[in-house]
Design a binder for these strands. Structure first.
Lengths: 117, 117
DNA sequence: CAGACGTGCAAACAACTGGTTGCACATGGC
DNA sequence: GCCATGTGCAACCAGTTGTTTGCACGTCTG
């Protein structure tokens, strides 16, 4: 159930976990939809490398291609980023709950009989 | 300047971008601090694999080891997750701004002379 | 103290990643 | 119609990743 969601999240994180890819995502974020060629303009790697990275980002659902004449524009899919953000939130929230549980255990020394209410 | 922050973010995302590692992080999130051995108990990989993954997570700052007698407990570092979350927020926000800019361009047809105020 | 339990290191290995180069195929503008 | 521009394979390669196995070293506990 949450296994599929976890796999999807791992894919998104994997896609973002590469410097070149992350800078591509950032460029798309600030500059709007761009083609592979224009993305490779400023980059220090080949267009083909960028194309491969775009494929990875697309497989993760972070980016969506749309043909526009003879060029393909890649647009950011902010919903996917939101999903990933939510995933991180969930983990952090779980951790806070775990800490709270631990705190309660510590503050409840040995007298389990007393009624704290 | 933001280059360093970007590298750090990429590291965090890379660390989270592996199924085994992500499930480790989740276990730590819900179960509190755990040792490599206990983490490898339920997993389908060896303890050594878990240890290596923990090293990666530690290098990314997601996890902190603390010796407790003969075992080492790994605790989650939710601040790092928050940082990553913030990074995603920034990108999504940039995208929204880009869309807004585009919308303005579209709704401002050709009469650049009219005063919309 | 002796053994059980947990950690730490290193070698070995298949699979995958990120990157390049070279070439063929579409498409828009002149 | 031509050619510049942009995309789409495919092969190839070095480096990294994920994982296992084997063994040596600490450290609690009876």
């Amino acid at each position: 159930m949450s296994k599929a969601r976890e796999r999807a999240a791992a894919r998104v994180f994997f896609a973002l976990g590469d410097g070149t890819r992350l800078s591509v995502v950032q460029k798309l974020g600030t500059g709007g939809a761009l083609s592979a060629t224009s993305l490779s303009a400023g980059a220090k790697v080949t267009r083909q490398a960028i194309v491969k990275h775009l494929r990875v980002l697309e497989d993760a659902g972070i980016v969506t291609p749309e043909r526009n004449g003879r060029e393909v524009l890649y647009a950011l899919e902010p919903r996917k980023l939101d999903e990933a953000r939510g995933f991180l939130d969930g983990i952090a929230a779980g951790w806070d709950r775990a800490l709270e549980r631990l705190r309660v255990l510590v503050e409840e020394p040995a007298q389990a009989r007393s009624s704290p209410k």
